[in-house]
Measured scan of single mutants.
Amino acid sequence: TIEDAIKKLLKLAQKGQPYTFGDFTVTSEEEAKKLAKWLKKQL
Score class of each variant (00 low, 15 high):
residue 1 T to D: 08
residue 1 T to E: 06
residue 1 T to S: 07
residue 1 T to H: 04
residue 1 T to G: 07
residue 1 T to W: 14
residue 1 T to P: 08
residue 2 I to G: 01
residue 2 I to N: 01
residue 2 I to Y: 09
residue 2 I to A: 03
residue 2 I to H: 02
residue 3 E to G: 07
residue 3 E to L: 13
residue 3 E to K: 10
residue 3 E to Y: 14
residue 3 E to M: 14
residue 4 D to G: 09
residue 4 D to E: 11
residue 4 D to L: 10
residue 4 D to H: 05
residue 5 A to G: 02
residue 5 A to H: 09
residue 5 A to I: 15
residue 5 A to V: 15
residue 5 A to P: 01
residue 5 A to K: 08
residue 6 I to V: 03
residue 6 I to T: 00
residue 7 K to F: 05
residue 7 K to P: 00
residue 7 K to I: 09
residue 8 K to D: 04
residue 8 K to F: 10
residue 8 K to S: 05
residue 8 K to A: 12
residue 9 L to T: 00
residue 9 L to S: 01
residue 10 L to I: 12
residue 10 L to A: 03
residue 10 L to C: 02
residue 10 L to W: 11
residue 11 K to I: 11
residue 11 K to N: 10
residue 11 K to L: 13
residue 11 K to Q: 12
residue 11 K to C: 14
residue 11 K to D: 13
residue 11 K to E: 14
residue 12 L to G: 03
residue 12 L to F: 10
residue 12 L to W: 14
residue 13 A to M: 09
residue 13 A to W: 14
residue 13 A to K: 03
residue 13 A to V: 13
residue 13 A to L: 12
residue 13 A to S: 05
residue 13 A to R: 03
residue 13 A to Y: 06
residue 14 Q to N: 10
residue 14 Q to D: 07
residue 14 Q to M: 14
residue 14 Q to P: 04
residue 14 Q to K: 09
residue 15 K to H: 08
residue 15 K to P: 03
residue 15 K to Y: 07
residue 15 K to I: 10
residue 15 K to E: 10
residue 15 K to T: 12
residue 15 K to V: 11
residue 15 K to G: 08
residue 15 K to W: 14
residue 16 G to S: 04
residue 16 G to I: 08
residue 16 G to F: 15
residue 16 G to Y: 14
residue 17 Q to H: 11
residue 17 Q to Y: 15
residue 17 Q to R: 05
residue 18 P to Y: 11
residue 18 P to S: 07
residue 18 P to K: 09
residue 18 P to T: 05
residue 18 P to A: 06
residue 18 P to H: 11
residue 18 P to F: 12
residue 18 P to C: 15
residue 18 P to M: 10
residue 18 P to V: 11
residue 19 Y to T: 10
residue 19 Y to P: 12
residue 19 Y to N: 08
residue 19 Y to H: 10
residue 19 Y to R: 06
residue 20 T to N: 06
residue 20 T to S: 06
residue 20 T to A: 04
residue 20 T to D: 14
residue 21 F to Q: 02
residue 21 F to A: 03
residue 21 F to H: 02
residue 21 F to Y: 07
residue 21 F to R: 00
residue 21 F to V: 07
residue 22 G to P: 05
residue 22 G to H: 08
residue 22 G to V: 11
residue 22 G to C: 15
residue 22 G to E: 11
residue 22 G to N: 13
residue 23 D to Y: 15
residue 23 D to P: 10
residue 23 D to K: 05
residue 24 F to V: 04
residue 24 F to E: 01
residue 24 F to P: 04
residue 24 F to L: 08
residue 25 T to F: 13
residue 25 T to L: 13
residue 25 T to A: 05
residue 26 V to E: 06
residue 26 V to D: 01
residue 27 T to Q: 03
residue 27 T to P: 03
residue 27 T to Y: 11
residue 27 T to M: 06
residue 28 S to L: 12
residue 28 S to T: 12
residue 28 S to W: 12
residue 29 E to W: 14
residue 29 E to Q: 08
residue 29 E to C: 15
residue 29 E to A: 08
residue 29 E to N: 04
residue 29 E to M: 13
residue 29 E to I: 13
residue 30 E to H: 07
residue 30 E to F: 10
residue 30 E to Y: 15
residue 30 E to N: 07
residue 30 E to S: 11
residue 31 E to I: 14
residue 31 E to T: 07
residue 31 E to H: 07
residue 31 E to P: 02
residue 32 A to G: 03
residue 32 A to F: 08
residue 32 A to S: 04
residue 32 A to E: 01
residue 32 A to L: 09
residue 32 A to T: 09
residue 32 A to M: 12
residue 32 A to H: 03
residue 33 K to C: 15
residue 33 K to N: 11
residue 33 K to Q: 08
residue 33 K to M: 11
residue 33 K to H: 10
residue 34 K to L: 10
residue 34 K to A: 09
residue 34 K to P: 00
residue 34 K to E: 09
residue 34 K to D: 04
residue 34 K to V: 04
residue 35 L to H: 00
residue 35 L to I: 04
residue 35 L to S: 00
residue 35 L to Q: 00
residue 35 L to K: 00
residue 35 L to W: 05
residue 35 L to V: 02
residue 36 A to V: 14
residue 36 A to S: 05
residue 36 A to E: 06
residue 37 K to L: 10
residue 38 W to C: 11
residue 38 W to A: 02
residue 38 W to P: 00
residue 38 W to F: 06
residue 38 W to K: 03
residue 38 W to Q: 03
residue 39 L to D: 00
residue 39 L to H: 00
residue 39 L to A: 01
residue 40 K to C: 14
residue 40 K to A: 14
residue 41 K to I: 06
residue 41 K to S: 11
residue 41 K to E: 11
residue 41 K to R: 04
residue 41 K to Y: 12
residue 42 Q to P: 01
residue 42 Q to M: 11
residue 42 Q to T: 08
residue 42 Q to E: 04
residue 42 Q to S: 09
residue 43 L to K: 03
residue 43 L to W: 08
residue 43 L to H: 06
residue 43 L to R: 02
